[in-house]
Every structure is written in C-alpha cells, then in structure tokens.
Lab assay of single mutants.
Amino acid sequence: KEMRNAYWEIALLPNLNNQQKRAFIRSLYDDPSQSANLLAEAKKLNDAQA
C-alpha cells in the first residue's frame, strides 16, 4: 500500500518531467522498501524545479 501511494504521489508531481517520474517509479519497483525515501527525494526535486 505504501508503494502504491508513493507511486501516485510521484506520478502526480507537477514539476517533474516524464523521464524523471519514470526513473523514480522504476526505483520504487526495484526496492519497494525505499518508498518513503524515494517519495521524499521526488518531492525535493519537484520543489527545486518549481
């Protein structure tokens, strides 16, 4: 469930391009235990690109 939530949050971040989203989501599938960390990194990048 945590992975699914992280997937959708990443997919809906407005300032990431599709390539960036795909990279984060690929990492999510590679290591679901890192969901919270990956989401935090994606949000950080999203904010930096705002």
Rank of each mutant, 00 (worst) to 15 (best):
K1W: 05
K1P: 12
K1G: 07
K1R: 04
E2A: 02
M3E: 10
M3Y: 14
M3R: 06
M3Q: 11
R4L: 14
R4H: 15
R4S: 13
R4T: 14
N5W: 13
A6I: 10
A6E: 05
A6L: 09
A6W: 10
Y7D: 02
Y7M: 12
Y7G: 07
W8P: 01
W8C: 05
E9K: 10
E9Y: 14
E9A: 13
I10C: 02
A11C: 09
A11N: 15
A11K: 14
A11T: 15
A11W: 15
L12P: 01
L12D: 06
L12Y: 14
L12E: 07
L12V: 09
L12R: 15
L13F: 04
L13Q: 04
L13H: 06
P14N: 07
P14R: 10
N15Q: 05
L16F: 01
L16N: 00
L16I: 07
L16P: 00
L16S: 00
L16K: 00
N17M: 05
N17Y: 07
N17P: 02
N17I: 04
N17V: 03
N17W: 04
N18Y: 08
N18T: 05
N18A: 09
N18I: 11
N18K: 12
Q19A: 14
Q20E: 06
K21S: 01
K21D: 00
K21M: 03
R22H: 09
R22S: 06
R22W: 11
A23S: 14
A23W: 12
A23G: 13
F24E: 00
F24Q: 01
F24A: 03
F24Y: 09
I25N: 02
I25K: 02
I25G: 02
I25V: 06
R26L: 11
R26N: 04
R26F: 05
S27R: 12
S27T: 11
S27A: 10
L28P: 00
L28M: 10
Y29K: 07
Y29R: 07
Y29L: 07
Y29T: 06
Y29A: 05
Y29G: 03
D30T: 13
D30W: 15
D30M: 15
D31W: 08
D31G: 03
D31V: 06
D31M: 11
P32N: 04
S33D: 04
S33A: 11
S33I: 03
S33E: 05
S33N: 09
Q34P: 01
Q34R: 13
A36C: 04
A36L: 11
A36Y: 13
A36T: 12
A36E: 09
N37R: 12
L38G: 01
L38C: 04
L38N: 03
L39D: 00
L39R: 09
L39I: 09
L39P: 01
A40S: 11
A40H: 11
A40L: 12
E41N: 09
E41Q: 11
E41C: 05
E41H: 12
A42T: 01
A42L: 02
K43C: 03
K43N: 10
K43S: 05
K44E: 08
K44L: 05
K44D: 08
K44Q: 10
L45W: 03
L45A: 06
L45F: 05
L45K: 07
L45E: 03
L45D: 02
N46Q: 02
N46I: 01
N46L: 00
N46F: 01
N46P: 00
D47W: 14
A48M: 14
A48L: 13
A48T: 13
A48D: 13
A48S: 15
A50L: 11
A50W: 09
